[in-house]
Design a binder for these strands. Structure first.
Length: 384
DNA sequence: AAATAAGACAACCGCTCTGCT
DNA sequence: CAGCAGAGCGGTTGTCTTATT
């Protein structure tokens, strides 16, 4: 296609921007506005390529950028959005006023991702690292499947029954059960790679009602009439699919004719830009995936006048859905903002002590990795 | 105090998407 | 429809700062 290089490298400066360069760029954009980034540096007297100027402006110099530490709410929102959207940083950034995709990406990679790994949570799937377990050795213990109390056996084996989320335990047991039924044909890696309880549970629970296009091997190999019974989570028989990426990003809401608000990222932007308000979203099932009634949606790409707000009470910006108990239960000691109208919110748990984001995160993901699992070794492997 | 490691974040690279001609 | 440029995106690298030995 004879694509031209993004910039002519001859004589163009690279690397960190100087204050003088920043000022030149700011002055120019204040005078002329931005756009046509290719010609902008020349007109502004900058020895930079247009792409570099655009990045500098969008990631650093833009006046509406919020600097400084991420708040707890922002961090929580990032984690939740990432569990649905994955590494779609721009989509995540669109829900975090004043934050850039680059900033969120960096923060994720340097803070959140490492913390999740430390806690034994796969930052990609947001599920506990089942691959930390030697599933094959577990499966070799056939007695595990010879009775109906396999869940108890499993939890005893893992040694975290009192702490692990029971839904997670059910899921893990189901997975193991399914693997056993399929004679564990050497595709455990595939299974691990595909496993995302946030998405997979939907497919497992309602493979017919929710035929997502990205159905994985696990789902595809399952015969709905038989395997569904094996994999069905009896705690959620409503057939209402989870609020997943397909709903957030995709256009196929007609698949869900009832109870599912027309709510995805693109439509949200449309709604916002048209000044429409969000329908009052209420949890449609026991998992409460649509969160509380206190929801404010803001899109930094729009002016600050376009605050997107549900019918809940005003003010406090809250992440717009909650984790169901399938993986990360919001604990009963979930922190409550002391002052919901303040930007600098202090959180207390039920014991009245302040919660740092990390401590809350630890609470939120309340399970422990048994000693038999060498998480440090895993972290080492991850960094290689 | 110096050397080294780790952390944090700005910036770059290469690819894709979109709109125009 | 093809070609092209502009713009955006996600992954990666580079550099500076801070902590540790």
């Amino acid at each position: 296609m004879g694509r031209a290089p993004c910039c002519d490298k001859n004589g163009l400066k690279k690397g960190p921007w100087t204050p003088e360069e920043d000022q030149k760029l700011i002055d120019y954009i204040q005078k002329h506005g931005y756009g046509n980034w290719r010609t902008l540096p020349k007109n502004a007297g900058l020895q930079r390529c247009g792409k570099s100027c655009r990045l500098r402006w969008t990631n650093y110099l833009r006046p509406d950028i919020k600097r400084g530490r991420f708040s707890f709410e922002e961090e929580e929102t990032i984690i939740q959005l990432h569990s649905i959207l994955g590494n779609k940083w721009s989509a995540i950034a669109a829900r975090l006023p004043g934050r850039t995709d680059n900033e969120i990406k960096n923060y994720w990679n340097t803070h959140i991702r490492k913390r999740l790994l430390r806690m034994g949570i796969d930052p990609v799937t947001h599920s506990p690292r089942l691959d930390l377990l030697d599933l094959s050795s577990i499966l070799s213990n056939s007695s595990l499947y010879n009775n109906t109390s396999s869940q108890m056996d499993m939890s005893r084996l893992l040694g975290f029954q009192p702490l692990v989320n029971p839904e997670l335990l059910k899921l893990a047991t189901s997975l193991l059960s399914n693997q056993h039924q399929n004679n564990f044909q050497g595709n455990d890696n595939q299974m691990q790679n595909n496993y995302n309880p946030m998405l997979q549970t939907t497919q497992i629970q309602a493979p017919i009602q929710n035929p997502l296009p990205n159905c994985t091997t696990m789902t595809n190999t399952a015969t709905p009439t038989t395997d569904t019974a094996t994999l069905t989570d009896t705690s959620n028989q409503t057939g209402v699919p989870f609020f997943d990426e397909a709903q957030l990003m995709g256009p196929s809401f007609e698949q869900y004719p009832t109870n599912i608000p027309n709510f995805d990222a693109q439509n949200l932007d449309h709604l916002q830009s048209n000044g429409l308000s969000m329908p009052n979203i209420q949890p449609t099932n026991a998992f409460g995936y649509y969160g509380t009634s206190h929801q404010t949606f803001m899109d930094p790409s729009l002016s600050s006048n376009h605050t997107f707000q549900s019918n809940g009470s005003e003010g406090h910006h809250q992440s717009f859905f909650n984790y169901g108990p399938s993986v990360m239960s919001t604990p009963s000691s979930s922190p409550t903002p002391l002052n919901s109208s303040s930007n600098s919110t202090t959180y207390v748990n039920s014991s009245g002590t302040e919660n740092s984001p990390e401590s809350y995160c630890n609470e939120m993901m309340k399970f422990e990795i048994p000693d038999i699992l060498d998480v440090n070794q895993f972290l080492l492997a991850q960094s290689n």
